[in-house]
C-alpha cells in the first residue's frame, strides 16, 4: 500500500469543498422540499412555459454562438495555418485571440452597445451613410440575434485558440499523399482531414456551448433582466428579485448542469466513437 495519494490531499480537499460539494448541494436541493423530504415537484415546476422558453432561448443562443464560433474560428485558423498567408500574421492573431477570448463580461456588453446600440457607431454609419436603419429592419441587440452576435466576440477567438494546435498537427505529407493518389482537395478533406479534426472540433463545440450557456455578465449588462435566458433567471432568483421559491432556484441550476452535462456527454460519446484510430 502506497501513501503517495496523500500528496494530492490538499487539492482533493479543495476540490471537494469548493467544487464538488457546492454542486452536489444544488443537485440534492433540487429534489428536496423545504422540510428536506424528497420531491419531484421542483423539477416539475421547471416545465412551465416561461421557464421552458428561457431554457429554449438559452440553448438556441448557445448552439448558434458555438456553431458559428466553431465555423468562423475554424476558417480563420485554417487561413493562417494552412491557407498560405505570410507567417508574421500568425502571432498577432493568436495574441489578439487570447485577449478577445478573455474580453467577456460587462465591458464586452458596453462595447457592443457603443457599436451596435441605437446610437452606436456602426448603427449610425449605416443609417447616415448608407441609409440603412438596422433597427428599422428588426435588428435588436437585446435579442437572440444581438446576443449571439455579441457572444461571438469571445467564442470565435476561443475556437481559434483551440483549433490552431489541431490544424498545426495536420501533416503536409497527408495532403500530398492524398493528392498524388488522385484525390481532389474536397476528397482529401472529406476522407482524411475532416475526420482527423472532428474530435477537436467536437471538443471546441462542447466547450463553446458551455461557455455561452453559463455566461451571465455579458447578457445582464447588455439587457438587464429584460431578456429571459436561464442564467439571468437564476441570477434574479438568487438575488431574490422574482420567483420566491428557493427550491425552484435549485431546480433551475440543476437544469443548467444537466444541459451542459448532456452537451459534454454527447461530446465524449462522439469522440470515443470517432477516435478508434488514436492510441
Amino acid at each position: 500500500m502506497s501513501f503517495a495519494w496523500l500528496g494530492v490531499m490538499p487539492f482533493l480537499l479543495f476540490a471537494l469543498l469548493f467544487l464538488i460539494l457546492p454542486t452536489m448541494k444544488i443537485v440534492v436541493g433540487s429534489f428536496q422540499t423545504n422540510e428536506g423530504g424528497f420531491t419531484l415537484a421542483n423539477i416539475a415546476n421547471l416545465f412551465q412555459p416561461s421557464i421552458l422558453s428561457a431554457y429554449w432561448i438559452s440553448i438556441r443562443i448557445s448552439l448558434a454562438s458555438a456553431l458559428l464560433g466553431c465555423g468562423f474560428g475554424f476558417l480563420v485558423a485554417w487561413a493562417f495555418v494552412l491557407g498560405g498567408l505570410p507567417g508574421w500574421i500568425r502571432s498577432p492573431l493568436l495574441t489578439f485571440s487570447g485577449v478577445a477570448s478573455n474580453f467577456a463580461g460587462v465591458p464586452l456588453a458596453f462595447a457592443f452597445l457603443a457599436t451596435f446600440g441605437r446610437l452606436g457607431l456602426v448603427t449610425l454609419i449605416l443609417r447616415d451613410w448608407f441609409g440603412i436603419n438596422i433597427y428599422g429592419l428588426g435588428f435588436n441587440l437585446l435579442s437572440f440575434g444581438g446576443l449571439t452576435l455579441t457572444y461571438l466576440f469571445f467564442q470565435i477567438p476561443l475556437a481559434i485558440l483551440i483549433i490552431t494546435p489541431a490544424l498545426d498537427g495536420m501533416r503536409r505529407e497527408w495532403r500530398e499523399a492524398a493528392a498524388i493518389l488522385g484525390a481532389s482537395g474536397f476528397q482529401y478533406w472529406r476522407i482524411v482531414a475532416f475526420p482527423i479534426l472532428w474530435p477537436s472540433l467536437l471538443g471546441t463545440f462542447a466547450l463553446l456551448f458551455a461557455n455561452s450557456f453559463g455566461a451571465v455578465a455579458t447578457a445582464y449588462a447588455l439587457t438587464g433582466s429584460s431578456l429571459s435566458i436561464v442564467p439571468i433567471l437564476l441570477f434574479a432568483q438568487i438575488r431574490g428579485d422574482v420567483l420566491q421559491d428557493p427550491h425552484l432556484g435549485y431546480a433551475l441550476a440543476f437544469g443548467m448542469i444537466v444541459v451542459t452535462g448532456i452537451a459534454n456527454g454527447i461530446y465524449i460519446w462522439l469522440r470515443a466513437r470517432s477516435e478508434r484510430w488514436i492510441k
Partner: peptide
C-alpha cells in the same frame, strides 16, 4: 482524473457554483 477535475469548472457554470456556495 486530474484532467477531468480541472476541466469541470469549464462545464459547471460559475453561477451554479456560487449558488452552491451561498447555500452551503
Amino acid at each position: 482524473f486530474m484532467e477531468f477535475m480541472t476541466l469541470l469548472p469549464l462545464v459547471i457554470p460559475p453561477i451554479v457554483i456560487v449558488f452552491g456556495y451561498i447555500r452551503l
